[in-house]
């Protein structure tokens, strides 16, 4: 069984995708079509690079340690949120999902 599948066992996680460094989808599981997962992977890849580029500049201008390299990001919507760590991205319910647990698990799985 793919290791990323275990993220789906967490409450509120609807989709999990693993993408390559170029943004192409490697594998994805959950309540979403393959095409939508491809789009989600591409979005997560782009969003990660943008957030990282901005964090790099913040660190450069302020000389403050602790921002880079960024470990992950969360885009919190009204009913759905997107969380990314490394080359993994999850789509989760905004209301009930245990975000702390999800982030910890994403971090753990992203190391494999």
């Amino acid at each position: 069984m793919s290791m990323i599948k275990r993220l789906l066992a967490l409450d509120g996680v609807n989709v999990v995708c693993h993408f390559r460094d170029d943004g192409n989808l490697v594998e994805g599981y959950g309540l979403m079509s393959r095409d939508e997962m491809t789009d989600l992977a591409r979005f997560a890849h782009d969003y990660r690079r943008m957030a990282q580029g901005n964090a790099d500049q913040l660190a450069m201008f302020t000389g403050m340690r602790g921002w880079t390299p960024p470990r992950g990001w969360i885009l919190r919507g009204v009913t759905q949120s997107v969380c990314g760590v490394g080359n993994l991205v999850c789509l989760v319910d905004s209301i009930d999902a245990p975000l702390n647990d999800i982030l910890l698990e994403l971090r753990e799985v992203s190391r494999w």
Binding site: N54, Q57, L58, M60, F61, T62
Partner: peptide, 13 residues
């Protein structure tokens, strides 16, 4: 917003 962050950071540094 990003350009403003860059302009401020650039001038400061």
């Amino acid at each position: 917003s990003i350009a403003t962050m860059q302009a401020r950071g650039w001038e400061q540094i």
